[in-house]
Amino acid sequence: MSFYDYFLNYFKNRFSKNQITNENVSGAILAELVIISSTLIAALLLRHISIVLTAVVILILLVLILSNLPISIKFFQEQDDSIEKMTFYAILCLGIIVSLVYWGGL
């Protein structure tokens, strides 16, 4: 089964009650490709810190990406307009930034 069919089926299962246009599916595929390729390329930037770290991070990313494959749709559902998700991610991000900058910069 091709990647496109896989995608289409996932879409249909999830949103079967409403119409799907080819524009939605092509947009989702583009988002999927952009996220996967850019994340992997961006991970290569870690080689300026340590090459072993880069290899480990890329392996972890590959496992994460392959195990959650229609990743753009999951991202889309997390990037929701609900206040709960927005505040949660804001606070989570605050925690990550503070700990990363504090212990990373020391």
């Binding site: 989702a28 988002a31 952009v34 996220i35 850019s38 991202f75 889309f76 990037q79």
Partner: peptide, 24 residues
């Protein structure tokens, strides 16, 4: 030292999320 790294990280995250969410 960490200034540049943090900037690059958040900028790339912003670009990826922005364009991929716009596509959908």
């Amino acid at each position: 030292d960490i200034f540049k790294g943090v900037m690059i990280f958040i900028s790339i995250a912003s670009m990826i999320l922005g364009v991929s969410m716009a596509a959908m």
